[in-house]
Design a protein around this nucleic acid. Structure first.
Length: 271
DNA sequence: CACGATACCTGTAAGC
DNA sequence: TGCTTACAGGTATCGT
């Protein structure tokens, strides 16, 4: 579930429950996820007041009045459950607010992470220092991509998944953006011409914006523990559509494997 | 250094 | 009904 639009939607949902609230209790149910939780996680958050939430790439940030930020990543299977009716074996961390709400970080595959970072050191935090520009921000441009991809022989699909090039795209939205821009995913990144990059940037923004808008409407009450595939999945033009007709030319959508992951595309519409 | 392969971990769906 | 296999929204690390 979690690429940039899903993380954005999650952050907005959590903000409703957390902003301005005091964290009354922190329950740590296991050692950690991808890496151990910070040893002082519970101590650092208990009694702290949440000032606001933000997002950077696919990370969610819970800012506190103590100058420390809880940074979470949802990996492949993570999500926050709001006021869960009953405990689940994959609820690994639970925050309880002074207003009596419970937020459970649930992640069956445990590819996610939770860290504590000083507010003043966020930009220099190793996981953030190497990130490329936000795709929805002003720094992403055809010029930036041209610079980042110049001379690169790796496939454009794989380069767009590299968070150092653009921060926040995942498998779904890379496939969708390349389709919309009419670029073959196998093209050597350095050989995608400037005109194609000029088409690509607005398509990246559009597909993310649309997914956020759709996610916002579907997950408004994402307290529900289902929410697996958001409403936007109905709008996929290539992702997961192997063998089905292209929405533009009716040719069957193809699937290949790149970097060990599926890529879907239309061989006729993408060159 | 660039690039591809692999590892991490569990759940689900499809095939036999 | 069971058992096996393939695959899943991500990232870090290890060879070549």
């Amino acid at each position: 579930m979690p690429e940039l639009p899903e993380v954005e939607t999650t952050v907005r949902g959590l903000a409703h429950c957390l902003e301005g609230q005091t964290i009354a209790r922190v329950r740590v149910m296991r050692e950690g996820l991808r890496r151990p939780f910070p040893a002082d996680l519970a101590q650092a958050l208990t009694g702290a007041r949440v000032t606001h939430l933000t997002r950077r790439a696919k990370y969610g940030l819970v800012h506190t009045d103590r100058g420390r930020v809880m940074v979470f990543h949802l990996g492949m299977s993570g999500r926050w459950r709001i006021d869960p009716a009953e405990a689940d074996r994959h609820d690994h961390l639970v925050l309880e607010t002074g207003a009596g709400r419970a937020l459970a970080l649930n992640d069956p595959r445990r590819f996610g992470s939770v860290d504590l970072v000083d507010e003043a050191g966020l930009a220099a935090w190793p996981a953030f220092a190497a990130l490329g520009p936000e795709p929805l921000g002003p720094e992403l441009s055809a010029a930036h991509l041209a610079r980042a991809l110049a001379g690169r022989s790796a496939a454009i699909k794989l380069m767009l998944l590299d968070q150092r090039v653009v921060a926040g795209l995942g498998n779904i939205y890379v496939c969708e953006a390349l389709f919309r821009a009419g670029i073959a995913p196998t093209r050597a990144a350095g050989k995608v011409d400037r005109a194609a990059l000029e088409r690509l940037v607005p398509e990246i923004r559009a597909v993310l914006d649309e997914a956020i808008a759709a996610g916002g409407s579907t997950l408004r009450d994402f307290a529900q523990p289902d929410g697996e595939l958001g409403y936007f999945s109905k709008a996929f033009e290539v992702y997961g559509r192997e063998g089905q007709p292209c929405t533009r030319c009716a040719n069957p959508i193809g699937r290949i494997v790149q970097g060990g992951r599926s890529t879907w595309s239309c061989a006729r519409c993408q060159r």
